[in-house]
Structure formats: C-alpha cells, structure tokens
C-alpha cells in the first residue's frame, strides 16, 4: 500500500512499489492526461509534479511518492476549473497541434515560472529541453511561456468571425 495525495486528494494504491507513477496514475487512478512517450525519461510527455518538483513519472517508482503530493495536468486548473496562466497562454497562442506532449510541456512550464517568474530565452531553453514536441510547436511554447510570465502581450485567442463581418 502506497499513500500519497493526487491533485490534493488523499489516495492509496496497492501496487508493486517499483511500478512507475505514470502507470499508477493512468491505469489505477484513471487520470489519462499524463502521457506515455518513451519510458526512459527522454521525452517529458509523462511529466508530473512530485511535491512541486517536475519529475518523469515513467521512470519514477510509485514507492517514491509515499507521503508526497503528486500533481498531474488535471490538477493544474483551479478548483472550479479556472485555467492557470500557463494554460490560458497555451490557448491564446494556439500552441497545441496534436496535443499529446502538451500536458508535459505545461507541467514543465508551470514549474519553470514558479521558480523563475521572468525567464530569459536561455532559461526557457534549459527548462524545456527535456520535453519533446514532435509536431514542432516550440516557437509557440516559447512565446506562450513569455505571455504567461507577462513578458509579452497575448496574441489573443485569435479573432472570431464577428470581427470579420
């Protein structure tokens, strides 16, 4: 039995202590926002926060979570579902394409901005280099992080048809 909190809720699971957090979260807790990409901590799709620190859940055994707090993409928004600044920026800059890596990207960016509210390009490169986006949305991720940090204005969730009339 491993006990921890998941997105603020207490949880306990019967699992092989060596089982990576990723599979416990996805299969036992049914939270599928956290993705499997490589299984070797190389792509970042599985990034969750463990006591606030971004970790690769595919390579972190559930035993590591004993007594700790796990936060997944499902726990990033506020209690009423209000999106975080990072999530809002991801929408305003229309970042995702396929979207598969974006949970991990958002978890990494969230941790970056908490520790470094005004990151430089080099800071962003360093913090985000562990997260692969195969669709190639890096330019937008970079801009969205700056928008979330208030360093650049939001491009706006684009125009709707109303303005074009």
């Amino acid at each position: 039995m491993v006990k921890f909190t998941i997105n603020g809720q207490p949880a306990s699971v019967e699992a092989d202590p060596a089982m990576p957090i990723l599979w416990v979260v996805r299969e036992q807790l049914g939270l599928t926002g956290t993705k499997f990409g490589c299984g070797m901590a190389l792509c970042g799709a599985c990034t969750v926060h463990l006591d606030g620190q971004p970790v690769r859940s595919c390579s972190t055994p559930i035993a590591e979570a004993e007594g700790k707090a796990i936060t997944t993409i499902e726990g990033v928004a506020g209690p009423e579902g209000e999106l975080s600044k990072v999530q809002q920026a991801w929408i305003s800059e229309q970042v995702p394409q396929c979207g598969y890596c974006q949970s991990g990207q958002i978890m990494a960016a969230t941790a970056l901005l908490r520790d470094n509210p005004s990151p430089s390009d080099a800071d962003i490169d360093a913090a985000m280099a562990g997260n692969i986006c195969r669709c190639g949305t890096y330019v937008r991720i970079r801009r969205a992080i700056k928008v979330a940090a208030g360093l650049e204005p939001a491009k706006g969730a684009a125009q709707t048809g109303e303005q074009a009339a």
Partner: peptide, 14 residues
Amino acid sequence: LAKGKAAFAACSSC
C-alpha cells in the same frame, strides 16, 4: 531486495 528492486526502477531507464 524488494526495496532495492523498487528503487532500481529509476535506474532501469538506462
């Protein structure tokens, strides 16, 4: 040994 095996999961990615 079980503890070690569990802890080794972090190493098993490499």
